[in-house]
Design a protein around this nucleic acid. Structure first.
Length: 486
RNA sequence: GCGGCUAUAGUCUAGUGGUAGGACGGAGGCUUCCCAAGCCUUUAGCGCGGGUUCGAAUCCCGCUAGCCGCACCA
């Protein structure tokens, strides 16, 4: 199984490993080692460079991980991020109480309290669908981690389940700071927390993870347009709509027309696809947007297509991001609870801005890079990261363990390490050292030999072709920079 | 959370009640002008806790974690 092979390298070389391992670990929590941290950082940097450049009015902010309860009343998470659960007293199976009630009585139980649902189950003599046993009382299970802020009896807080709320609660001030213009974009890259009942799938479903989200605040009357539309209108999107089981390709123009989705939304689909195919280097047939059904859609979304990548390690297309038209759900919610006006006044028109959210799971994207880059050949294992994503860009070796070669190699290492991630290795045969670098995906290796001392040249070895070029020491830096950017 | 299976060096693995062994990897050295070569030295392990027993990696119980199915995934 490929997942075992990838996980083997990931553990052995220091990409990721289970959290709190020495105490037995806790399900759903993972640590990043030195190489994983670097790949994650490089993905995040690429994300920033791509998405924050899409509009001069897009910015990154940094907000708290802990927020008071009221924030999640405003966002709707306290109400919607909760599942009412009941379990069978006989076979211990757990069920969603509202589903059980709906199935058995046809009543919509979504807005009922736990007590009301318990009463309905008792009065309706609703039994366990599996074993016909009696069902116990209904309890709410909240996916958010609750905390006490301050000494006992203080304020109740929650760890944020998404970074987005940081942008919404900062909107009023940031809109003012950014001189009252729309659209504005507020991006946050950071940790989020969800108390999953049962996280599985290795690294894919986590209880603490990282998101990169960009909230774009705009005038809803302008949902049907985008000022840069011309540059994307002929771009072919890869789509998996609800009305077909196939992946289809359609230009932005005809997609917007056919499915009646505003150009403002479709524009960012095109830019997202561009990020995956061009910046991250994924092959086209691994990528698609999938339309979500009403049932699958998050409670706050009006239009929702997920970004999916085909991953062999996980056996199919998996969600790595989503493009969410959240409307004014969040700002209106916060206005209602906080009593602060979220409405803006632009050229005399007063309205609450709508939000288009570009949301990405950083850790899932990190795993995607491992999945799609992993390659096992007869003689070697290699991560074919696109060079800007590789944890190390270059490694420098003295060909032999001789003082004069070592000192020259160190000199080159010192130079390169000032501007790029550089490794230095003198241990073992030269072939072994190349393989070590292949295994962590280092695109280039520089070897110092006796010609370096005599003629001032080194060999530059390419990860993918294993070819070597002899180049002057003086041009090493420039040559690598040129190759990375090509 | 339920049911089933599982847990031995960093990784993979042998070990069914009596001295934990190997492969690969790592470190140090010798050798070596370019793709996991060879030789020497070395490193490192029975998930955690309890029980049975003269004696437990091995049998029993609990916990934790992983895998598979069910449920869950806003």
């Amino acid at each position: 199984m490929k997942i075992d092979d990838v996980m083997d390298v990931a553990l052995r070389r220091g990409f990721i490993f289970p959290a709190s391992e020495i105490y037995g670990g806790v399900s759903g929590f993972w640590e990043y080692g030195h190489l994983g941290t670097m790949v994650k950082r490089k993905w995040e940097d690429a994300w920033r460079r791509h998405f924050l450049k899409l509009d001069p009015n897009f910015y990154e902010i940094s907000t708290t991980n802990i927020m008071p309860k009221a924030v999640f009343e405003g966002s709707g998470h306290l109400e919607n991020f909760n599942d009412p659960l009941t379990s069978c007293k006989k076979c211990n199976q757990r069920f969603r109480a509202d589903d059980i009630i709906a199935e058995s009585t046809g009543k919509n139980a979504e807005d009922l309290t736990a007590e009301e649902m318990t009463d309905l189950i008792i009065s309706g003599k609703i039994q366990c669908p599996k074993c016909k046993g009696a069902l116990g009382e209904v309890n709410w299970f909240n996916m958010m981690f609750r905390l006490d802020i301050g000494a006992s009896g203080g304020t109740t807080g929650y760890l944020r389940p998404e970074t987005a709320q940081g942008s919404f609660i900062s909107f009023k001030r940031m809109f003012e700071v950014l001189r009252n213009r729309l659209p504005i974009g507020l991006a946050i890259i950071g940790r989020v927390y969800r108390n999953e009942i049962s996280p599985r799938q290795g690294f894919f479903r986590l209880r603490e993870f990282n998101q990169a989200e960009l909230q774009i605040f705009f005038d809803p009357d302008k949902f049907e347009e985008h000022e840069d539309w011309e540059s994307v209108k002929d771009v072919k999107l890869r789509l998996k709509p609800l009305d077909t089981d196939d992946i289809i390709e359609m230009s932005c123009e005809s997609f917007s027309d056919t499915y009646g989705i505003g150009k403002f939304y479709v524009y960012y689909m095109a830019r997202t696809q561009e990020f995956y195919l061009e910046k991250l280097g994924l092959s086209r047939d691994m990528f698609r947007f999938r339309e979500l059904s009403e049932k699958e859609k998050a409670f706050y979304n009006k239009v929702h297509w997920d970004v999916e990548v085909f991953m062999e390690t996980l056996g199919g297309y998996k969600e790595v991001g989503g493009i969410h038209y959240r409307t004014d759900h969040d700002l209106s919610g916060h206005q209602a609870i906080s009593k602060q006006k979220m409405q803006v006044n632009i050229d005399g028109k007063k309205f609450i801005p709508h939000v288009l959210e570009l949301s990405f799971g950083v850790d899932r994207n990190f795993w995607t890079l491992l999945d799609v880059s992993y390659d096992k050949e007869d003689e070697r294992t290699v991560f074919r990261f696109k060079p800007p994503m590789a944890p190390k860009t270059v490694a420098v070796f003295p060909l032999l363990n001789k003082p004069e070669l070592i000192s020259k190699a160190k000199e080159i290492y010192d130079l390169l390490s000032m501007v790029m991630e550089t490794d230095y290795d003198k241990g073992g045969s030269i072939g072994r050292r190349y393989r070590r670098q292949d295994e962590i995906g280092t695109p280039y290796c520089i070897t110092v030999d006796f010609d370096t001392l005599e003629k001032g040249t080194v060999t530059l070895r390419d990860r993918d072709t294993m070819n070597q070029d002899r180049i002057p020491v003086d041009s090493v830096l420039q040559e690598i920079v040129t190759r990375i950017s090509s």
